[in-house]
Design a protein around this nucleic acid. Sequence first.
DNA 1: CCAAAAGTGTTGAAACTACACCCATGG
DNA 2: CCATGGGTGTAGTTTCAACACTTTTGG
Lengths: 227, 227
Amino acid sequence: MAHTYEYPRAALTVDCVVFGFDGGELQVLLIRRGLAPFKDKWALPGGFVRVEETLDDAARRELEEETGLREVFLEQLYTFGTVKRDPRERVVSIAYFALVKPGAVTAATDAAEAKWFPVSDLPSLAFDHADILTTALTRLRGKLTYQPIGFELLPPKFTLTQLQRLYEAVLGEPLDKRNFRKKALSYDLLIPLKEKHQEGPHRPAQLFRFDPVKYEKLKKKGFLFEI
Amino acid sequence: MAHTYEYPRAALTVDCVVFGFDGGELQVLLIRRGLAPFKDKWALPGGFVRVEETLDDAARRELEEETGLREVFLEQLYTFGTVKRDPRERVVSIAYFALVKPGAVTAATDAAEAKWFPVSDLPSLAFDHADILTTALTRLRGKLTYQPIGFELLPPKFTLTQLQRLYEAVLGEPLDKRNFRKKALSYDLLIPLKEKHQEGPHRPAQLFRFDPVKYEKLKKKGFLFEI
DNA sequence: CCAAAAGTGTTGAAACTACACCCATGG
DNA sequence: CCATGGGTGTAGTTTCAACACTTTTGG
């Protein structure tokens, strides 16, 4: 440990799996690579970690540089470090997963080389990014059932049906409407608004917003949000 | 991304949080540092990742070099990358947590500078190793209640009381004997052996072993081991 | 026969699942 | 008035939590 300078070092990168929800299907944001290796292939947004920034900072910076996204939910996922995952040289990548609300991207991205893909129909990906994506999906499914992170994928005001569609899209199975609503409301973390959501020729739906303050209080008491 | 060689690089290390169980309290294995910085302070076993080995390999290698442990349960935990966590230079560390069965260490370790500490009475630690340890403990607690990893901390043959003591030590709360036994046996993953465990002037206890093959089958069907 | 840990069932409360109809609106 | 999605309650089943005594052994 005294001779750290004698050895060659791996390069360090961050990669972000950015999830979005369009109301129907779960989506992932990918970037088309402009440079070799894997030129013109789709890849996760990401890049090299600078020596004077934290890993979280690097992930946020790269996300903003490549997609324009700011202030998103971001969480470290896993670190990928097989020896040959980058054909050029040894590269270790700390993967993150991000959840963004609808609209955040169209507003921010230069439409240039970033594009949403439904998770059910992904193109082939550069490096080991398909593995990273699979890991992120598994984590998202697991997390969704015991932590209220689904709200990060919805607009600030949403209906219970939107919330249910999201859960169904992520978990990949239909849920019972009445049971879902009972459960979702039972924690008293959804605040009904005075407004209604109107679209189409049918009864308008009650809008809710999530109460993050109340959630933080509950969390400290060792609380689990399970659906 | 084309100019990776122009930038200074962080050093990469692995650190292992090694948990053990002595029948009473949950323990962590620490190493006394022989070199600066933090000379003579206690620290997690770990060291630099070589450029031609995977992260998992590095963790196993360091664990064996510093503690003599082999063939332990090992899982990646989290990657720590704040800028000043090592006073010498930028060091990013991939933390692992390991679970070892009783006896594995006394047999393997040169008794030299490795020592078990109960989690309730830890010395002050080098670097940000206290943070890493806290993260590992939280993960262990969470994992124990939905995955059967407790067996990695017990001898191959164990009694239900030993298993209960372990859960109580990790979770930090007493559990009801009858309910615990019912639940533990309900999954049909514990195989009763012909032998009994005798110690002290009282009724001998039934010994069990965990059935990992059956567990793998169940796991593929999306099964959760919850206690 | 005493001390010490092993082992065993039941009951009331709570949570979960399955399931079908009326409501409000726009066109 | 019709089509569309919004909204609601109950009954049977399962799971959970609480709780106390008998058994086997060694000394």
